[in-house]
Amino acid sequence: MNDIIIKNITRIVIPFAQIYGIFVILNGHVSPGGGFAGGAIIGTSLILYTLVFGREKGRKKFSHKASEIAETGGILIYVIVGLIGLVVAGRFLTNLGAGFPEGVIGNIISGGMIPILMIGIGIKVASTMISLFNLLIDEAI
């Protein structure tokens, strides 16, 4: 797509979209949204970038290797947090019992491990969306 308006608007919009995605992920446990919704927003911003600037530039921004690592890492965060619960409290995915801070209800840092899990889910969903999109593009060509 070689349109200067679209390119410039995209440049302006993408940072806001990504910051909004991060906001949704981080506030997942105190407000509607969460890892999946926020990850989808970030993933969509990456898809928008690929659509506007082409597959090559998109690959430079977020390579296949990076998405592989991000996908594995997202689940690994979840598993490791779960294992902390298993080791400390004797049950997989134990939250407060395993020493995660409870915090003040309504703050970002509250709810023990849930924000960490949300970040993991967010990374996983964002990278899955962009790699699925790339797979579909490559298939068509």
Binding site: R91, L93, T94
Partner: peptide
């Protein structure tokens, strides 16, 4: 010995 019951997160 006996069956095992395991609940997640306690």
């Amino acid at each position: 010995v006996g069956i095992i019951i395991y609940t997640f997160g306690g």
